[in-house]
Amino acid sequence: MKILVCISHVPDTTSKINFTADNAAFDTNGVQYIINPYDEFVLAKAMHLKEELGASITVLNVGTAETEPSLRKAMAIGADDAIRINATPTDGFFVAQQIAEIARTNTYDLIFAGRESIDYNGGMVPGVLATLLDCNFINACVGLEIENTTATAQREIDGGSETLQAKFPLVIAGQKGLTEEKDLRIPNMRGIMMARKKPLAVLEPIATENKTGSKGFEKPEENAACKMVAADNIDGLIDLLHNEAKVI
């Protein structure tokens, strides 16, 4: 089984989000980068499948050289090799087109990606990718079992889950549940040493036309001060919720 795991390199979840003076770009000053949390779940699932059924895992990122530590980390966790498409990921469609190009030449059975990245939250790369490759796609995947070349997967729906079946090749956008938090992988020293010797191919992007473009950012307005209500004044709280906020 050949597995491709697509990862994003994103600001740590605790990062303060600031922008450059003209609000044109994200201010990377002092920001720590991590593998996108949603991608960690799919990478751990890929590792699990590799150990259980045997598989080769290629990890891929569309990004500049700064993202290589995330690719090395993924290889330290257990991916066999890595591909970096040397480009700034300007929009989701662009990223999907770059991955599709790789997938067409290398033909993978399973392509994993996180449901969305926690920076731009586009949530579109896996779906567009599957459509460009004309293969099936399961979004918000919270459970997966493989038997020969058939996948049985659960996807999250509003208020529950749906079980689906599809044949390879398949694109899966995963999240927590696909792997439990406690089963996420942390690289050990041996893995880190081995990752240094694993191949990391740097490829140039194919030329495409952008479909969307960022025109700048703004921060949410500061919240007005919290109205404090005394613990013995529950009637007061109910009155505020009913008459002022009008939510009950």
Binding site: N121, S214, E218
Partner: peptide, 15 residues
């Protein structure tokens, strides 16, 4: 919404 609700992005759709 972007950056997990911590900011807003202005996005041009050009298609």
């Amino acid at each position: 919404k972007a950056f997990s609700n911590k900011a807003f992005q202005h996005t041009e759709i050009s298609t």
